[in-house]
């Protein structure tokens, strides 16, 4: 089947099998390897991306379901001059990542958390990230990073390319 999907602002049309998962489409067809796959059961959230303004687990969405969609991955966050998105900057400042495997999904989910709630408490951040697993950080510095990012204002809860996350 043909699908036309805009990823990080770039639209492309590709021929895909109906069963191709969006996560594999991003990794194998589009060559965007930041999005990781950590489980088979929609549990870990490593594959989280933003689709049409909402955080979703791309291992549980078919590429064909995303025909016509706007997708943002970790690679689409930084500015053209390499300037970090506020969430990326906060994860670095607060040491919110170690091995880095959960990080792309965690950062995208965290943007979704701030889109819903621009100034969450620690508990609200933890509940907002309940669908994303991390083995390295004990979540402590991830929670701090999201709180820090919130201080940067509304941009921390948005993705570029005018695909604002719906509140």
């Amino acid at each position: 089947m043909q699908v036309s999907i805009t990823v990080n602002g770039e639209q492309r049309t590709d021929e895909v099998e109906p069963r191709l998962l969006l996560a594999h489409y991003l990794r194998e067809v589009r060559g965007l390897k930041a999005t990781n796959i950590g489980c088979d059961s929609t549990s870990c959230g490593a594959c989280t991306v933003i689709v049409d303004g909402l955080s979703v687990k791309s291992c549980t969405v078919l590429a064909v379901q995303s025909d016509g969609a706007q997708v943002t991955t970790l690679e689409g966050l930084a500015g053209p001059d390499g300037e970090l998105h506020p969430m990326q900057a906060a994860f670095r400042a607060e040491h919110g990542l170690q091995c880095g495997f959960c990080t792309p999904g965690m950062v995208m989910a965290a943007i979704g958390v701030l889109a819903d709630n621009p100034d969450p408490t620690d508990r609200e951040v933890r509940e907002g990230l309940e669908g994303n697993l991390c083995r390295c950080t004990g979540y402590h510095n991830i929670v701090r990073a999201v709180r820090t990012a919130a201080q940067a204002g509304p941009a921390a809860g948005q993705v570029p390319q005018a695909q604002e996350v719906e509140a």
């Binding site: 959230g45 969405v61 989910a109 979704g112 309940e130």
Partner: peptide, 9 residues
């Protein structure tokens, strides 16, 4: 239900 990503779909 589930987590935010699940509730989005």
């Amino acid at each position: 239900v589930g987590d935010p990503q699940v509730r989005h779909r």
